[in-house]
């Protein structure tokens, strides 16, 4: 179920990148794809019936989920934020220059 949701998020992101003309919508698609990858990694680390990897009284080491994917996702979220911020600032520049957010109207971006 979680796998299906994450695959669906990734595919929605790819669809938005493929079809949308608006640059901000493309960045939103990139962000959605990012969330899909994060959800996939987190759900790979999940083990049925186990709890969060914080050792405290009442939680023994044999009773926690895999902490490694969570650490990697923490990294991935930060990278995603950086990419989104940088892309948005480039889009602001593009808008200032061409007065348009449509990727087919922006002259140097046509393909």
């Amino acid at each position: 179920m979680f796998y299906f949701a994450s695959a669906a998020l990734i595919v929605i992101g790819i669809y938005m990148l493929m079809v949308k003309k608006n640059l901000i919508k493309m960045i939103v698609g990139l962000s959605i794809m990012d969330s899909g990858v994060n959800l996939l990694l987190i759900s790979i680390g999940y083990i049925k019936g186990k709890t969060a990897p914080i050792i405290q009284p009442g939680v023994s080491p044999s009773n926690v989920v895999d902490p490694l994917p969570q650490a990697l996702v923490l990294t991935n979220i930060v990278i995603g934020v950086s990419v989104t911020a940088l892309a948005l600032s480039v889009v602001i520049k593009v808008y200032k220059h061409y007065r348009s957010l449509n990727s087919s109207e922006v002259r140097d971006m046509k393909w």
């Binding site: 990897p53 914080i54 902490p67 650490a71």
Partner: peptide
């Protein structure tokens, strides 16, 4: 560290 994710990160 009690939080294993912090230990890894």
């Amino acid at each position: 560290s009690a939080n294993l994710v912090t230990a890894v990160v």
